[in-house]
Amino acid sequence: MKLLFQIFMIFFKLSPITFGGGYAMIPVIEREVVEKKHWLKQEEVTDLFALSGSIPGAIAINSAAFIGYRIAGVLGAIAATIGVMIPTFFIIVMLSIFYLFFSDHPKVEAAFEGIRPAVVALIVFAAYKMRKGAVVDKTTFAAAGCALVMLLVLRLHPVLVISAGAVSGIFLIGIQDRLGIETKIDDHEQQLDYFMGADI
């Protein structure tokens, strides 16, 4: 029980500082879990972060759950997840209340008028940062183009396009393997940091 509480507290404390994405947590987690408590080894933490990127969901939450699980099993995973969620949950609820009260105020409306194009810039920036890890060859370039047409022109539901992406990846690598073409997945093991959760 004491161990679970300690796990909870570590993630509870570090949750509010996870501005700018899950990867910002890595050094803090390493200090707490590896250097102070000696619960895990350095390599294990690095591995767990890489693994977190291969599962749907935010890096911050996935890695908390993984690390919690490695320290104290299923309950450890739950303790870490709750710990990482609670602070951000209450911060967001408070901001929601503020937003409901003030969104009609002319000054606030004006501020959001200016913020909206900046949000578009942030989104474009997210795509810009990921481009190297994602568009690695002609095939992936074409895939990105096709996906964009499916979304913008054909107006397919994003979930459908995501599923199509995963299936076509397996299919395309399968074909390239059959034909004996060397594929790009062989040499890009460690590009995750510009992909998954780069901005979450």
């Binding site: 994602a134 979304l151 995501i162 995963a166 299936v167």
Partner: peptide
Amino acid sequence: VQSAFYGLRPVVIALIVFAA
């Protein structure tokens, strides 16, 4: 899994551009 991500990554870029 790596093959799936090979196909998923470009879709993620497209989704982000679409959002923008």
